[in-house]
Design a protein around this nucleic acid. Sequence first.
DNA 1: GTGGTCTAGACCACA
DNA 2: GTGGTCTAGACCACG
Lengths: 132, 132, 132, 132
Amino acid sequence: MQWDLNSDKPVYLQLVDQITAWIISGYYKPGDKLPSVRDMAAQATVNPNTMQKAMAELERTGLVITYRTSGRIITSDEELIRRLKAESARNQTVEYLEKMKQLGYSPQEVPGLISDIINNDTAYNNADGRIV
Amino acid sequence: MQWDLNSDKPVYLQLVDQITAWIISGYYKPGDKLPSVRDMAAQATVNPNTMQKAMAELERTGLVITYRTSGRIITSDEELIRRLKAESARNQTVEYLEKMKQLGYSPQEVPGLISDIINNDTAYNNADGRIV
Amino acid sequence: MQWDLNSDKPVYLQLVDQITAWIISGYYKPGDKLPSVRDMAAQATVNPNTMQKAMAELERTGLVITYRTSGRIITSDEELIRRLKAESARNQTVEYLEKMKQLGYSPQEVPGLISDIINNDTAYNNADGRIV
Amino acid sequence: MQWDLNSDKPVYLQLVDQITAWIISGYYKPGDKLPSVRDMAAQATVNPNTMQKAMAELERTGLVITYRTSGRIITSDEELIRRLKAESARNQTVEYLEKMKQLGYSPQEVPGLISDIINNDTAYNNADGRIV
DNA sequence: GTGGTCTAGACCACA
DNA sequence: GTGGTCTAGACCACG
């Protein structure tokens, strides 16, 4: 999996977002053991302090649980995960619709825009590295 | 119009984004005179210097033109505005699809989510302001 | 004659420089009567206050003399003009050589650069409107 | 190296000019690390914010690259530097010729003036620092 | 310690 | 009153 950081937002919050997304999407499974902070930091080319801060945040939300002696695991509370997934999707969508409205697009016009982009295979599939 | 600032991003960039959106959406028309820096700053409850920095940025993009002693106007280059609008919409959409993909939704599932929310009139219409 | 203002320097100083140059170069002759401040301001598309400030400066140097009742004239002291011309040319040249030295050109290389530009007729002759 | 500021121009632009000249002239080499903003500001006896503004400008031109937490370096793009050098020399020269023309010297007379000054060793070599 | 942002408050040139 | 610049001093994220 690939870390994708930009500079408009505190890095530690971006880490929180990404890890959350990985849990929600099932890429990290409930009960899974997480790599050490050191390793994850190295992998994201980030200072361990920063990753540590992100993990603290994740513990606060309950998505990650720390066992003093044996590292961290993903929560097994699948209901929590499901709830967060729905909530997160809704938030992203509302936020997106809001932005599009600001730009002058009605919610009814939006699906058209989306399919335009999806069908635009070449550009979109390669857009991975994009910096917004 | 209402200023809507949060702390995820430098304030001056949020100012840039909002003003840009107002221009792009046609709320500010090409050739319109902008309020003075001091007034806009006061209205956004932000330091004049911060607003100034935002305006400098807007000038750099060409959306706004400064007359040293008599204020600023929106560019009359409608082509520029149209281009920025399309570009901006595309960026927002790609970013949104990217996030949804991270959450585990394929681009094909997305339109369904959107219509769910649109039809959910009560909640969405009231949520209007902001869900950050 | 054409006014050529840019924005890097106080406008009134640029006016001083230009009028000085016109006197020195003989475009304005010793003893000539100057147009009214109002007219010159209008012609330079500048506020009369600003032109006034420039004239005050020119009086200080002695290049311009004010007769309360009958306007302003250029000094008849040709010796003063000749001295200022030599001085001014020298200052400009030293300043220029200094800048070129900063860029890494020795004074010996400079004449070559100049002739390159002079012979580059098209570009140089049209360069009039140039903004540096 | 020595900072040389006057009040004809915004300070931050003068900082930009000087640093640019140091890069262009090779005094700062491609890839060199720059001193911290705070240090440079102190050395130039200028407010750190002002120096910061200058650096932002330099970054915009691409001459300088910022690593958020570990300082700045001069670009390694030697081609860019070479291009800016030529461009800058041309601008200075055209501007100078323009001023001399205003004073009543034809471009053909100029080289003579220059050699007069160069050969005038004592005065010129001591004037070194600045004749503004 | 590094860059970056923000505020508060002042001053300037210009109209 | 308009934009623009500058200072002083503070705080933040990151390493």
